[in-house]
Design a protein around this nucleic acid. Sequence first.
DNA 1: TCGTATCGAAACTATTGCGTCTCGTAATTA
DNA 2: TAATTACGAGACGCAATAGTTTCGATACGA
Lengths: 195, 195
Amino acid sequence: MATTPARRPGRPRDARADEAILEAAAAVLAEQGPGGFTVDAVAARAGRGKATIYRRWPSRAHLMLDTARLAGVVLDDPDTGSVVEDLVTILGHLAEKLTTSSVGPLVAATIAEAAVNEETRKVYAEFIGERRAVPVQVVQRAIDRGELRADADPDLVVDIVSGPVFLRAFMSQAPLDETVLRRVVTTVLEGVRAR
Amino acid sequence: MATTPARRPGRPRDARADEAILEAAAAVLAEQGPGGFTVDAVAARAGRGKATIYRRWPSRAHLMLDTARLAGVVLDDPDTGSVVEDLVTILGHLAEKLTTSSVGPLVAATIAEAAVNEETRKVYAEFIGERRAVPVQVVQRAIDRGELRADADPDLVVDIVSGPVFLRAFMSQAPLDETVLRRVVTTVLEGVRAR
DNA sequence: TCGTATCGAAACTATTGCGTCTCGTAATTA
DNA sequence: TAATTACGAGACGCAATAGTTTCGATACGA
């Protein structure tokens, strides 16, 4: 049942402003990183006044959270029938996001914040949990159809294959191309393959 | 040949000041994260003047880099003759450091800074490279004595086994006890075991 | 037409934090 | 003793930035 919106007097909010602001915010975050994410920069880029932003978001932090949420990694389930192909595809998307977009610095900043701040840690754990659901499901499917050992731990397998992606993206800057990813996946799965 | 230091007139630098400053810097970085790492905070905590800091480090960034470098994890080479035991031991030390000491937040803070700052990234990559030397050597030894396949990539193997340690320490807070570590190591090595 | 809320733009306030400089004092060499 | 450098403390200049307020203009309901 669609309720007729309670109309208030005065000029209504411009929906395109929300859009323009979020779009600009994502661009600034991508190009400048979290440190360069200033309200003035977002306002200028969006071509809107700061008041228009503060009318919608109570603080810079809230705007940044919404921006991060929308810029988050979206992992589709490829479901090719081969656990190797599925995982290589998923890790490929993850690696690309982490190394070429604002998500990398953003995740790094959040990790650091979470190490110091209990509240952030909870929210972040929840966020991570949602992302893990897809690869865990992929591994579980492979177990179910007998491709992998029945006693394999899907959570641990996912951690083992995705760990190096984060490691190389954030720490060593070592190669992270498809060849490497494929080698990671095949090596790890060899240890849990049904025989 | 020890050169007599060219003595200059005036009061000499107090070596305890260097120590106190670095110690305070590590504490601040661990407790406040990179955002709270201010020169004033470090000076106050160290009980020294800011000038004393700037007499030793040209900028906040330089101080932060030195702080991260010195607080690093020290990894001994167990060399038990079994690559599994060696790696489990090394990863155990790493996991304990990351989860129970200030090193965890400190590394997290540095990762975040490195994600945005080119200078920090270079120095940090170098730092990471040094730490990797021990486990890489352990894997190489196992290859040399025929325990692991000759075409295995020691660097990649190390990344695969240590990735999940960082992942669980920083992101999921999932268990990281010896049982888990042993399972990680044996699973991964199964994929590169000589046969 | 009147009242009200929004708009973009920008001035404004207040805070933070880097890096410099000054002060009076202490340690060291010549 | 004189010259020189370091010390802790903190004031200071300066830039950046969060958040508020003001401005004239605009869009809507009554």
